[in-house]
Amino acid sequence: MSKRTSDVSGQIVDDDKVITVVIRSLGKLFDATAEELSPLKRVTNVVELELRNPDGSSEEIIVNKADFEKLVTPEVLANADSIRGRRNGYRPSGD
């Protein structure tokens, strides 16, 4: 078994104990242990959104699930495109 170093504490950690933490909003990642991360409180009843702007920029936001559900109905979600594959109704041109 190999060992790695926690970026949080600097202590050597067995490979099977290392958790890689991805900070999406900063495009960064670091290694830590579950014990080191335990003081972080999990937030529940939220929805994570990526807003893609016409100029190509985007931002990730977290919103309250109840507020989201007031705005976006189950019908809207049922008809929404998947993030994988083509958008509904898209037809490549047959030129």
Rank of each mutant, 00 (worst) to 15 (best):
S25R: 13
S25C: 08
S25W: 01
S25F: 01
S25G: 13
L26K: 11
L26A: 07
L26G: 04
G27E: 06
G27P: 05
K28D: 07
K28A: 11
L29G: 09
L29M: 14
L29C: 09
F30E: 03
F30I: 01
D31G: 10
D31E: 15
D31K: 13
A32W: 03
A32R: 02
A32T: 02
T33S: 08
T33V: 14
A34W: 06
A34D: 11
E35C: 02
E35D: 13
E35M: 06
E35F: 01
E36D: 13
E36V: 05
L37A: 12
L37G: 10
S38I: 08
P39W: 06
P39L: 13
P39K: 05
P39F: 05
L40D: 06
K41W: 03
K41N: 12
K41I: 07
R42P: 07
V43A: 08
V43P: 00
V43M: 06
V43Q: 09
T44Y: 07
T44W: 01
T44P: 00
T44K: 11
T44S: 06
N45F: 02
N45R: 11
N45W: 00
V46P: 00
V46T: 10
V46E: 09
V46S: 12
V47L: 08
V47N: 05
L49M: 10
L49P: 03
E50W: 01
E50F: 03
E50C: 04
L51H: 05
R52T: 11
R52S: 13
R52M: 14
R52G: 03
R52A: 11
R52L: 15
N53D: 14
N53P: 00
N53M: 14
N53I: 01
P54V: 14
P54I: 11
P54R: 07
P54C: 05
P54M: 07
D55V: 02
G56M: 12
G56W: 10
G56L: 09
G56I: 08
S57E: 15
S57F: 05
S57V: 06
S57W: 07
S58T: 09
S58K: 13
S58Y: 12
S58P: 04
S58D: 10
E59G: 09
E60C: 11
E60L: 13
E60K: 15
I61C: 08
I61H: 02
I62F: 01
I62W: 01
I62V: 14
I62P: 00
V63L: 09
V63G: 00
V63P: 02
V63M: 00
N64P: 05
N64C: 13
N64S: 12
K65H: 09
K65D: 13
K65L: 13
K65A: 15
A66W: 03
D67F: 06
D67L: 13
D67I: 03
F68M: 07
F68D: 08
F68E: 07
F68T: 06
E69Y: 00
K70L: 08
K70M: 07
L71P: 00
L71S: 04
L71K: 04
V72H: 10
V72I: 15
V72E: 07
V72A: 12
V72Q: 08
V72T: 10
T73V: 12
T73S: 15
T73R: 12
T73K: 14
P74Q: 04
P74R: 04
